[in-house]
Design a protein around this nucleic acid. Structure first.
Length: 224
DNA sequence: CAGTTGAAAGAATTCCCACG
DNA sequence: CGTGGGAATTCTTTCAACTG
């Protein structure tokens, strides 16, 4: 492996991982630690802000980003088109966050693409009118899934009965216009599904549950 | 008892030099 | 020029002795 290859690969690694150990890197690239030290120094000299903390090892300082990402014109159009599609989604928190993503993308477009992108944006719309939102909790639920944070919610079942329960959130999926939360219900003591639009009061508790490797793929196989 | 200090041991890093 | 090996140096961690 050539030095240039290793350096670029190293830079990409830094952007993907939280922190890197010199020893691990030397094993991965089959070079001595001495060489890795040289590589890290070379990156620093090239202007990459690399930090070091004992215990944390080497990491990329916050705020550093790649040289401007270049979107092609077609990609820019795709992003604003996705926004139009996204606006039909039933979860307000998701739509909101996606809109800010689109703003950020638009901000980095080069002038010539900007014009075309703004133009196309005003010329696309989904055929159905904008729906009224039925939930605003998706983003919070997603955060709890990855933080293994127990949720408390009031759930209104199809027949109008309301129950208050604690749920360990595992996954979400989208079907027929609404989002479904798959979670382990501490009230029923088994995995249950909850439509987000039927969740009335959602809050995170201070309780956490053991990390797991739940996979929707497996879950669907079992239940089909 | 909580908080410091100072060795000693252990890691991490740099220095130096030889090799291809 | 890029590399590795090993010595030299610097930084961390650990832990027991000490202080108020």
């Amino acid at each position: 492996m050539k030095r240039l290859h290793r350096l670029t690969s190293l830079l990409i690694k830094f952007q993907t991982k939280k922190s890197l150990k010199v020893r691990d890197l030397s094993e991965q690239y089959n070079v001595s630690t001495r060489t890795i030290y040289r590589d890290i120094k070379a990156l620093e000299e090239a202007g990459v802000p690399i930090g070091y903390e004992p215990g944390e090892d080497y990491f990329l300082l916050e705020g550093y980003q790649l040289p401007p990402i270049h979107f092609t014109l077609e990609e820019s159009h795709a992003v604003v088109t996705a926004k139009a599609i996204m606006e039909q989604n039933s979860d307000f928190s998701l739509v909101n966050n996606f809109n800010t993503v689109v703003e950020k993308v638009k901000a980095v477009l080069k002038a010539s693409h900007k014009e075309s992108t703004f133009e196309i944006e005003s010329r696309i719309a989904p055929s159905v009118s904008k729906r009224q939102f039925s939930s605003d909790t998706l983003v919070d639920i997603q955060k709890s899934i990855t933080a293994f944070n127990v949720l408390h919610l009031d759930y209104e079942s199809a027949n109008g009965v309301r129950t208050s329960r604690k749920v360990r959130p595992l996954a979400v999926y989208f079907t027929q216009d609404h989002w479904i939360l798959v979670g382990y219900c501490l009230l029923r003591e088994e995995n249950r599904e909850f439509r987000l639009d039927r969740i009335k009061n959602l809050s995170t508790t201070s309780e956490f549950f053991p990390p797991n490797h739940f996979r929707l793929e497996d879950y669907f196989k079992k239940h089909s």
